[in-house]
Write a protein that binds this DNA or RNA. Structure first.
Length: 627
RNA sequence: GGGGGUGUAGCUCAGUAGGUUAGAGCGCUGGCCUGUCACGCCAGAGGUCGCGGGUUCGAGUCCCGUCACUCCCGCCA
């Protein structure tokens, strides 16, 4: 007999009755009746009940075992009496009579309860992640993650893609997020950067003639985290294709995404390819967002003209000064109490906005509310028409500069739909947002800047760059969005060096600077580069959607805290002086506020992390180069 | 960098208007219980109320500072 197990804990069924079996696993739960004891034994595969009674010489020993200990149980698989069958368990028709019992590893009292759905605090969960991951929900999430990634690989290969690896130690990429840096021992004062994405490498693979690339790519960014943004590192399904148009890219990835969501979406409705395509400008106007949630039926409307020169002075004046008015319909809210609308107004003010005007159309169509009193019937009709309103509806108004109005109307759209419970349940709604602007005006610097990826091909190519106002040029840039979550962005790339120089010239880079900063890529483009493009959907976010988790850390086995610390491993950590010396580094730490040093660490007990208290390690990253 | 929330037993939380001995459930320890499956019953141990300072006759509660976790803005595809 195998020293540990003949079966896994989810395997035994009625047809195993009579067999001599051996199971190993964790003691999930104990039910001690004094003369009779039940043990639920758990492993990756499932749960099996083991039973022993007082007549056994090892009864006392089994009785002493603590939950979460790892044990090996040997005995006969027996059928349960019909009245004691547990229909909730796949193994519920049988149980194992304990004849031999070996403790493989005893557990101390656990700091969080594995066998409970009760949520533990995030800090405890992260500090003892191996215990947290034993819990059913987390265990399922991580298993799902594995299956989704396998399916993605399978489907990408089916589409003719090949998987490649690209360097982790690489050069700092000039645009975008802050890099994580790795000091070089052999090159004093120089640093590698961890890739924010394998962007340039995948383009170089295209130049190298590999037609279709993909990678489950780790990406590193030293930026603040959010509920949907993992601190430090995350994964993308990174891919790139040669000799393609935007439509070819969409055609390639849509079946992969739709397929995975179909397969793992738990029966929720999934949009069929081709997904809707929404131009950026329309997205901002109609949804108030560049990542529209299509589950939300509310469509915004521009009603600026209805207020121009109207009796509602606040808006009329603002419009004269260049503001716009966006209408956010609240379908069916006409019957709601006045307080429903006023609460939105106070909510808006708490957000630092001027307020949120509204009109209520009663069931007989009578317009009510302070704004309605100041508008003539023609104006009201115009608003009704533009926003698609009917009797029994409400409508909110956002009045502000165009960009702010769009963004806030988008927020209101979400809030109103939530309040009215209008979000379509149990579905995945996909769309592409296309035609992003190539450039934007940077209010802070007063200069023109790339609005997204600088390596995208401007629509209209060289001619557009030479003849158009830069702020009107669109990029061949697109985002894929699911349920209002931005899964990724992608682009048809700029593969022409002259166009590249020109594009960078517009934001103030000289040819020399472009050569200096992107030498790898720009040189490669000079030796025959295929037109190419791709995209990189975020894998963690996909799994988050599939697992229906509100937080991305719930689908990552070992995430860091919001401040990018690993509480379990103690990273980032101080390093000994001689290691710094070897790397030619000298610390120049920020001044600490004078503060009596705290006593012993707050970890207390046997946290087991082994991390020395080490005071408050100064901000990492503020390292100055030596010599 | 800024704003919000949270921090009380190993875990999840309650703690009323500042008042004497800080509670509950789970877990833990001991006892009882032969068909439970969130087993049940009885008893017990366990608390620097995150930390530091202040106000007060008196602080878990009020004030200031600080730390940690978290949500949001900035930032970031």
């Amino acid at each position: 007999m195998h020293p540990y197990r003949t079966h896994t804990c989810g395997a035994l069924r009625a047809d195993h009755v009579g067999a001599q079996v051996r199971l190993s696993g964790w003691v999930h739960r104990k039910r001690d009746h004094g003369q009779l004891l039940f043990l639920d034994l758990r492993d990756d595969d499932g749960l099996t009940q083991a039973v022993i009674d007082v007549s056994s010489p090892i009864f006392r020993e089994v009785e002493r075992i603590r939950v979460e200990s790892v044990v090996c149980v040997t005995g006969q698989c027996v059928r349960r009496d019909p009245e004691t069958v547990n229909s909730k368990l796949p193994t519920g028709e049988i149980e194992v009579r304990v004849e031999q019992f070996d403790v493989l590893s005893a557990a101390a009292q656990v700091p969080l309860q594995v066998n409970s759905d009760e949520d533990a605090g995030e800090e405890v969960r992260l500090r003892h992640r191996y215990l947290d991951l034993r819990r059913e929900r987390m265990h399922r999430n991580i298993q799902l993650r594995s299956e989704v990634i396998f399916a993605l690989r399978e489907k990408m290969v089916e589409q003719g893609f090949r998987e490649f690896q690209t360097p982790i130690l690489t050069a700092s990429s000039p645009e975008g997020a802050r890099d994580y840096l790795v000091p070089s021992r052999l090159h004093p004062g120089k640093f590698y950067a961890l890739p924010q994405a394998p962007q340039m490498f995948k383009q170089l693979l295209m130049v190298a003639g590999f037609d279709k690339y993909f990678q489950i790519a780790p990406c590193f960014r030293d930026e603040a985290s959010r509920a949907d943004r993992s601190p430090g590192e995350f994964y993308q399904l990174d891919f790139e294709m040669s000799f393609v148009t935007q439509d070819d890219v969409f055609d390639a990835i849509e079946p992969v995404l739709a397929g995975v969501f179909e397969q793992f979406g738990g029966g929720r409705t999934v949009d069929k390819p081709p997904f809707r395509r929404i131009p950026y400008d329309e997205a901002m106007l109609t949804y108030g967002s560049d990542k529209p949630d299509l589950r939300n039926p509310i469509l915004l409307a521009d009603v600026t003209e209805a207020f121009r020169g109207s009796g509602f002075g606040i808006f009329a004046k603002a419009v004269d000064k260049g503001s716009v008015v966006r209408a956010v319909p609240a379908p069916g809210a006409g019957g709601r109490a006045r307080s429903f609308f006023d609460n939105f107004n106070t909510w808006a003010q708490r957000q630092g906005k001027a307020g949120l005007g509204y009109i209520i159309f009663a069931d007989d169509g009578t317009p009510k509310g302070p704004i309605a009193k100041n508008l003539e019937t023609e104006r009201l009709d115009r608003i009704k028409q533009a926003a698609g309103l009917k009797a029994g509806d409400g409508v909110f108004f956002v009045c502000d500069k165009a960009s702010e109005a769009a963004a806030f109307a988008g927020t209101v759209r979400t809030e109103v739909a939530n309040a009215l419970e209008l979000i379509e349940p149990d579905c995945y709604r996909f769309c592409w947002v296309v035609d992003f602007p190539m450039y934007e005006f940077d209010e802070e610097t007063g200069e023109i800047a790339f609005s997204h990826n600088p390596f995208s091909m401007p629509q209209g190519g060289m001619e557009a760059l030479e003849t158009q106002d830069p702020l009107t040029i669109k990029a061949s840039q697109y985002d894929i969005v699911c349920n209002g979550v931005e899964l990724s962005s992608g682009a048809i790339r700029n593969h022409l060096p002259e166009v590249m120089y020109k594009a960078f010239g517009i934001v103030g880079y000289s040819q020399q600077e472009v050569d200096d900063r992107f030498s790898g890529l720009i040189n490669a483009l000079k030796y025959g580069a295929p037109p190419h493009g791709g995209c990189a959907p975020g894998i963690d976010r996909m799994i988050m959607l599939l697992a229906d988790e509100p937080n991305i850390r719930e689908v990552i086995p070992f995430p860091m805290t919001q401040r990018a610390e690993d509480l379990m491993m103690g990273a980032p950590a101080d390093v000994p002086e001689d290691r710094l010396k070897e790397l030619h580094l000298k610390l120049s730490l920020p001044k600490k506020k004078a503060q009596p040093t705290e006593g012993a660490g707050q970890g207390g007990g046997n946290s087991g992390s082994g991390a020395p208290e080490a005071g408050k390690a100064g901000e990492p990253g503020k390292t100055g180069t030596g010599g």
